[in-house]
Structures are given as structure tokens and as C-alpha cells.
């Protein structure tokens, strides 16, 4: 009951109050869009970690592939943006197929292997000049169209799109987690052998989570491409597209569904609005310090911390 109520409030604020009050402030809206992009990746990353038990440093590859696929489809084949974005997700999913062999690796080996794979895609985007435009990049990527009499190419429109995408992904995450597959994946966490001998195909389930996570990240990369209208390999495959989400997810609580989103918005906004004005260069250092503090103080992250304090207040009052 209480959770439902707070989610409705959150939705009302996100869809109503924010666009109405801050909609004309382009700077804040662009920060929010960027925060939700990070949050979306963080959510997809946390899904893989939480359900699949995998720590990925390679999500920038999915982000970049999604961005390039969608940009190229709209630029060269005239594909409608919505379909191109979904195909961007599919492209990222296909990119994750080549990572399947590393699923059998564990711990740091998996993390390193997936990092290496991520780099391969950046090289392809740089070297395959005929298609990708090489390091010069792609420009004039189509913007979001006008629909239902509303111009989605503006800041508010883009904000509503990414907000909806991210919330739909959160819902999917929730459904997967509650499904039989989700329960089996949860079981696999600390007793993989025990789960396998009762008939669970652990490699398949992990692969499915990798696909879902890659697809989501690809769609978000595609969104970002149409939002900023420009792509180059160094930007699209930048390691920040995975490190920032990791910080956000861990800060917010990667075991929860909303944690990564709330973590992303909090971390990104604080960084940009507060720290950046205090220390123009090297402000990310404070983020690092903040993360360390969070890990020491509340290892499971911000959202579980908030929940616990709400419960405590409830009990006290």
C-alpha cells in the first residue's frame, strides 16, 4: 500500500510537476535527460548483476552499438525512429551474442573479457569508415518527430521519452524478477551447482539476462543518438557510459529496481549542480569519495537506507 502510494507520487512528480515547473529551464531539463540516460544504463547493468550475477564493464559497447545502429538506420534507410531505436536494442543484443563464450568465466575474468569485447566494437566503429563515417562520426542524425501535436524533439519531449523508456524497463525488470526465471536466477546466486542439478539451465538463463540487459542499453544508446544528433566512436563507446552507471547503481542500491535510477539522478544532479560549480576540474573525485562513503556506511545503497529510515520513523512515530 505504502510503496504503491509513493510510486504514484513519484510518477505524478516526474510526469507532471517537473515538466510544468522546470520545463522552460533548458539547462536543468538537459541535466535530467542525461541523468535518466545514465539511470537507464544503470538499471540494465544492475539487472545483469542482480539476476545474472555478472559484473560488466562492457556496457558502453551495447550503448554505442545501439546508438550507431539506430542512427545509421534512420540516416541511410529512412527507418522510422521508434523502430530504429528498437532495432538499436536488437543490434546491441546481437553484439552481446559474441560475448556468450565469456559467460562461463567467473569474477574478474568475466569482467576483463567483457571489457576487451567492448573495445572491439569501438575499433570497428572507428575503422569501418564507409559505413560509420569513422572517427569523424555521424552528424544530422534525425531528431524525434512531432506526434499527437507535441514536438518531441525539444527538451521536455525528450525528457518524457527517456522517462517512459526507463520506467517501462523498470517494469520489465520487475516482471522478470518475479517470474519463475527470476526465482531460479536468484537461487543460482550462491548455489549454482545446486540449482543446476534440479534442472535449471544456468548458462541459458544468464545468457537471457545478458540479452535483456544489452537490449535495454542499446535502446538507451539509440535514444541518446537521436537526442544529441551526433555520434563519434570516442563519444558513443566512451567508458563513462559504464562507469557512471556503475557508480549510480551502487550508490542507489543495485539490488533494488529503483535504486539505480534514483542513484543516477541523485549522483548526476549533485555532481553537475553542486560539485562542478565548486570545483570545475576534477569534480568527479568527490563522486568517488561519496561512493566510498556510501559503501562504508550503507553497502546496500541509498534506497535500502531510505527504506530502513522510513520504517524506523514509522515505528517511532
Amino acid at each position: 500500500m505504502k510503496t504503491n502510494a509513493s510510486i504514484w507520487v513519484l510518477l505524478l512528480v516526474a510526469y507532471g510537476a517537473i515538466p510544468l515547473t522546470l520545463g522552460s529551464n533548458h539547462y536543468v531539463m538537459s541535466l535530467l535527460v542525461a541523468a535518466l540516460v545514465i539511470g537507464g544504463i544503470a538499471l540494465a547493468w544492475a539487472l545483469l548483476g542482480n539476476l545474472g550475477g555478472m559484473v560488466s564493464f562492457g556496457h558502453s559497447a551495447f550503448f554505442g552499438v545501439g546508438a550507431y545502429v539506430s542512427a545509421l538506420l534512420t540516416l541511410k534507410a529512412g527507418t522510422p525512429i521508434v523502430i530504429a531505436m528498437l532495432l538499436g536494442g536488437v543490434g546491441a543484443l546481437l553484439a552481446s551474442l559474441v560475448m556468450l563464450p565469456v559467460l562461463r568465466l567467473r569474477g574478474p575474468y568475466f569482467a576483463l573479457a567483457i571489457l576487451a569485447y567492448a573495445h572491439i566494437f569501438k575499433i570497428i566503429a572507428t575503422e569501418w569508415t564507409a559505413v560509420t563515417g569513422g572517427s569523424a562520426g555521424l552528424s544530422s542524425i534525425p531528431r524525434f518527430p512531432t506526434a499527437f501535436g507535441f514536438d518531441f524533439s525539444g527538451k521536455v519531449g525528450s525528457y518524457l521519452i527517456i522517462l517512459s523508456v526507463v520506467l517501462i524497463f523498470a517494469l520489465c525488470y520487475r516482471l522478470i524478477r518475479a517470474s519463475d526465471y527470476g526465482i531460479a536466477l536468484r537461487a543460482m546466486h550462491d548455489s549454482e551447482d545446486a540449482t543446476r542439478v534440479i534442472g535449471v539451465n544456468s548458462v541459458l538463463l544468464k545468457a537471457l539476462m545478458l540479452f535483456v540487459s544489452a537490449f535495454m542499453t542499446g535502446v538507451i544508446g539509440a535514444f541518446n543518438a537521436h537526442y544529441i544528433n551526433f555520434l563519434e566512436p570516442d563519444y558513443a563507446f566512451n567508458g563513462l557510459w559504464v562507469t557512471l552507471p556503475i557508480v549510480a547503481a551502487i550508490f542507489g542500491g543495485y539490488r533494488t529496481i529503483l535504486g539505480p535510477l534514483i542513484g543516477a539522478v541523485t549522483v548526476y544532479l549533485i555532481d553537475q549542480l553542486v560539485f562542478k560549480s565548486l570545483i570545475p576540474y576534477g569534480h568527479q573525485l568527490i563522486l568517488g569519495a561519496l561512493l566510498v562513503a556510501m559503501i562504508l556506511f550503507s553497502p546496500s545503497g541509498l534506497v535500502p537506507l531510505l527504506r530502513a529510515s522510513v520504517r524506523r520513523n514509522h515505528a517511532a512515530g
Binding site: I183, R186, A187, H189, D190, S191, D193, A194, T195
Partner: peptide, 11 residues
């Protein structure tokens, strides 16, 4: 080797 995080029935 129980499936730790789950209830007995979920196991």
C-alpha cells in the same frame, strides 16, 4: 546446498 535466499516452498 539449499537455495539460500528462497523459502522452503520456493526451493
Amino acid at each position: 546446498q539449499p537455495l539460500h535466499e528462497l523459502t522452503v516452498r520456493e526451493n
